[in-house]
């Protein structure tokens, strides 16, 4: 299983580099989706179909939306160079994050091992033991999402609702502008 994970990781890294370096925006979008599908296969290998099924549908929908958005506008390639200072700042930040990650990964359990084998008082022990009796749901993931931790799901639904309102406000047909605002170019549908 570890060899398979290594291969998947290599595939995802190559796809991510292609997504950054390519000049064709369509190829970049498809490479980003390839990274996403690598993550999905990794979830399936770790026996988490509940986690994997949401990214599958979302990746496909986002791929369709992004291809429609780019092909209609006619935006085909990126132009412009990277500036040296920004590159250096990025590299320094990445190095700091890398150092922090080394410390953090030392405290994690070994790969593929559940956290509850190391934490005796983990809440997941309680959920697995009492989940079916208390909620009646055979799928423990749904029992946690919509019963024990339903408050988090409410927050997630609120975030989605607010972002949809924002998106509709941005792309609605007629822009509302006060007469006092300065004249700029106009958008036409």
């Amino acid at each position: 299983m570890l060899e398979m994970m290594g291969l998947l990781l290599l595939f995802m890294i190559i796809a991510a580099i292609v997504a950054i370096e390519t000049r064709d925006i369509l190829a970049a979008i498809i490479s980003v989706t390839a990274v996403g599908f690598g993550v999905i296969i990794a979830f399936f290998y770790m026996r988490a179909p509940d986690v994997a099924i949401v990214p599958i549908v979302v990746e496909v929908l986002v791929l369709v939306i992004l291809i429609r958005a780019t092909l209609r506008v006619g935006l085909k390639t990126f132009v412009g160079n990277r500036d040296f200072f920004g590159m250096m700042v990025t590299m320094a930040m990445l190095f700091v994050i890398f150092l922090a990650a080394i410390r953090a990964f030392n405290d994690l359990p070994t790969f593929g091992e559940p956290v509850i084998t190391r934490m005796m008082d983990a809440p997941s022990r309680l959920y697995i033991a009492n989940g079916l009796k208390e909620t009646g749901a055979a799928n423990i993931v749904t029992a946690v999402l919509l019963d024990y931790r339903a408050y988090d799901t409410l927050g997630e639904a609120t975030v989605l609702f607010t972002s949809i309102i924002g998106a509709i406000a941005v792309i609605r047909r007629k822009a509302r502008k006060k007469p006092s605002e300065p004249e700029v170019g106009e958008w036409e549908e």
Binding site: P49, I53, I56, N139, V141
Partner: peptide, 11 residues
């Protein structure tokens, strides 16, 4: 069948 099989309201 989100509470019996993988999946749920979002997917």
């Amino acid at each position: 069948y989100g509470h019996l099989t993988p999946g749920g309201g979002f997917a």
